[in-house]
Design a protein around this nucleic acid. Sequence first.
DNA 1: GATGAATGAGACTTCATTCAT
DNA 2: GATGAATGAAGTCTCATTCAT
Lengths: 205, 205, 205, 205
Amino acid sequence: MQLTGNPRPLRADAIHNREAVLETAYQSFAAEGLSVPIDEIARRAGVGAGTVYRHFPTKNALFGAVIDHRLKQIVTAGRNLLDDGDPGHALSEFIRAMALHWGARDLGLAQTIAGDGIDIYTLAPEAEARFMGLLGELLAAAKQSGTARADLTVREVKAIIVACQAAQIHTPDVADRVTTLILAGLRPSASGQNDETTATSDTPV
Amino acid sequence: MQLTGNPRPLRADAIHNREAVLETAYQSFAAEGLSVPIDEIARRAGVGAGTVYRHFPTKNALFGAVIDHRLKQIVTAGRNLLDDGDPGHALSEFIRAMALHWGARDLGLAQTIAGDGIDIYTLAPEAEARFMGLLGELLAAAKQSGTARADLTVREVKAIIVACQAAQIHTPDVADRVTTLILAGLRPSASGQNDETTATSDTPV
Amino acid sequence: MQLTGNPRPLRADAIHNREAVLETAYQSFAAEGLSVPIDEIARRAGVGAGTVYRHFPTKNALFGAVIDHRLKQIVTAGRNLLDDGDPGHALSEFIRAMALHWGARDLGLAQTIAGDGIDIYTLAPEAEARFMGLLGELLAAAKQSGTARADLTVREVKAIIVACQAAQIHTPDVADRVTTLILAGLRPSASGQNDETTATSDTPV
Amino acid sequence: MQLTGNPRPLRADAIHNREAVLETAYQSFAAEGLSVPIDEIARRAGVGAGTVYRHFPTKNALFGAVIDHRLKQIVTAGRNLLDDGDPGHALSEFIRAMALHWGARDLGLAQTIAGDGIDIYTLAPEAEARFMGLLGELLAAAKQSGTARADLTVREVKAIIVACQAAQIHTPDVADRVTTLILAGLRPSASGQNDETTATSDTPV
DNA sequence: GATGAATGAGACTTCATTCAT
DNA sequence: GATGAATGAAGTCTCATTCAT
């Protein structure tokens, strides 16, 4: 209709819009939860509601993109921990960061975790896979340096992260201490190495 | 208080309806989360929407009643653990039950705990207080029998429960194992008593 | 079921209930307008909602009864004015009382007048008739004593009352002055133009 | 202000819809009072309910817009009376028009004026102010030409209008006559009693 | 007769999604 | 491609009226 032949801005602004919507959505969901209306996100991003739907055909798709984006950042940060620091401590630092910093104050993430109508596997399968891959590497490194129980699995580590995040969301002022306690349960027990629970006399709590 | 011998049937049906609504609401919230519409709950309970509002003037009030009811059951069960069994193990059994059985598949509880627009203190302050009281007793008993670290606080225990529930909701098949690991972090460390971490050589995970 | 043979209170409490509901309804409508729920009126009157409906089968019927009751009081007061005082001034005093005292702060009356879904003729035809009869007598007396224009009709007087009440409801602080001005328009004109009666010296209506 | 030559059609239909809703709302409120449901207004205007709420986020906002729109028309008409005709008679003509024509059969206006849950100052403060300003001018002109008592205030004039409108709503067939009588009370008294201005000869207000 | 619980239509309002401009 | 207006299905809550106790 209006292809006037002049050099239109074309793709550039589209990409810019997508980024703006994604960032705005992330911050909005983090701060106020998943119930922030699309219209409101569009307004805050400075675009029309239709533009949001052009890039993300559904609100769920937007959730997925936000999670995907977030997980990419997290995976990058996690790999840096592994590459730049002490591999033996990378796992615990990562869990601590996930719980206390990255996941802190992220209501949207908490609601996603609480399963509020959201299935993260459906929404962002690729990023999820990469995330699990990173966890595997972190775990392997920790086991090798003897800072993690040999029988710990990747899925258990993920559940631990979820647990610590929940604690952070719910009771921020004790989350640090609680995370420390939980992490204590992941290291090899004093006596046994691969410990199939060499509990001596006293039953644990 | 009540005129004994008074044959007034009073509102037998009203009580019945209230129970029916409460039970239906509990199951609906547990299975599908807090967003189940009141109209739907009314339909499932076999009453008109107005009846729900007669008993619970607000959806929040219904949330509160459900939580209150649930916490009462939980507190009763917890006290039984304390009275009938080994006090030293009551805390760990209670946490395990909260995470793996009572909280299992209870989306509504998870969302309430995640703070999804709900403030449990406002909605069911009494039950919350009783719950914290029970936790205090359980914790004291555990400390006395040496199965819990002496520096553990009630609020930390609550956060631990929240954490374990989150793990259960998110990854049910590893929740049992994860809970065991987490509980391991709560017992006194092998050497020290109030242990400011008498870790020997290896840093924990 | 419970006819135990003892002397039941029977009618007495029914009459009492009717009075209580009527009085409560009057005060509620006057203070808060016609939208006060029946349940609320029942509660304030100390009876069940069913009792209200036994006496007044419809909310409109209750409106009618309130108006009827109110008009009876007013008619009695008006007749006293006529019998006990100066008949020449009874009309103006009555209008003034209707506007500034009896009708003051009666939101329900104002809404009835504004026609908020209410037809006073349908709801309380008898009382309305008696009210108009009283107005006729007041007007006749005023004409006879030369304090009202000879061409004034009863329906015009009623409209004047409605007008003054509206002023009172809307702008209470000038209602007295405005009523005085309006009443001034009702006395015979000085010159006798448009007027069968040539006012002599006296006070205006 | 507007980039002239810009061929953007913009939201021609939006403006059209807004007008349609406003007009429909005005007529509905006028004919049936303020209790007409928004859904019904939307239906009559041929739009969805959501469209009404896009333009007027609240029912009160719609009330306000209707009143504002109405008062603007009225103020314009009143100013024309002042500019184009005999300033001495403009006030009485305006009052007459307000009561008998503009306010006639306008239940919504009557209810608004009766204060039926509506606060005109909150809803349409600007229009109210302009309206009072116009009344002031009309009154000043009337006083200057000796057709209104010198001690009349603007608020009294407004109350008079309210009064006449109430009469019109309640008893349309005598409203004309009653308005005439009421207006008679506003002109300077023949003798000059209670009056700063000694009316000369002329026509009453 | 009285009670108050139940009903259910309907009010206002929100918001994911579509579509004309 | 972008815009934001329009849609309409829900959702929460109210209340006149009916009816079992």
